[in-house]
Design a binder for these strands. Structure first.
Lengths: 116, 116
DNA sequence: AATACATATGAACAATCGCTCATATGAAAG
DNA sequence: CTTTCATATGAGCGATTGTTCATATGTATT
């Protein structure tokens, strides 16, 4: 391997520069990983698929998915914190809905990958 | 709430049907969650960004990211298992590269979501 | 005020995860 | 065959995760 000025033994200097240019910053990387972690659980994915069809209250989602109100509520807090869902109160009931269209795009891309 | 024939108290029967139609099967949901779990770690994301620029050997990646060979190798096995990277051997060295273009699309979609 | 219904939340637990360390495998060079 | 370099792998660990259980908060009804 030719002479290097960067101290890297296994990587070309030019490659190091190119990688450093496109590599997102520490905070962006963290946020990106946090986002994908959200999608990395089938309960949360199922909740999102439910909300594709209709706004729904917490115990509605729980009924539909056959899970406890508590489990669903905990996961909805996770989705809320990540700004993937929003909610509105109507009396005693709280209706959750999708925050934006990116959610669907990301899930669709993932589905494309696994079904090929 | 009006009379239901499905036994659901909080959800309209029609909504139940619509959700059941679009909801992926158990195995698809599992695979989808598994896929996104892979993207849910910043070390793996950084490896993928490196491979966007160039095929690279294990210790090249380790050098570039300032991590141990072992840590990188373990993560490459995860990425390999998920068919996100492929590899070729050249003598003692093994070069890893991206398996397909979906990887980039998925990361780009995620990046779009967090930078808005 | 008291009750009932809808939701949120904190503690606890088993399960999983990412890294380190030590060691094993594999290929080339001497 | 022995050494060296590149990579893989298994055990062990501290940290994080998803669920359950019990309980708290919040709203409407009586």
């Amino acid at each position: 391997m030719e002479q290097q000025t960067t101290g890297y033994i296994h990587v070309h200097e030019e490659t190091v520069h190119r990688v450093n240019e496109i590599m997102p910053g520490e905070e962006e990387l963290f946020d990106l990983a946090e986002l994908f972690k959200i999608f990395g659980d089938s309960t949360r994915i199922r909740i999102l698929y439910v909300l594709f069809e209709s706004d729904m209250c917490v115990c509605g989602i729980a009924e539909l998915l056959g899970m406890t109100q508590s489990a669903i509520s905990h996961q909805l807090q996770v989705l809320k914190k990540a700004k993937l869902v929003k909610y509105r109160r109507e009396g005693k009931t709280i209706f959750y809905s999708l925050a934006d269209g990116h959610v669907r795009t990301i899930l669709d891309q993932g589905m494309e990958h696994i079904t090929e």
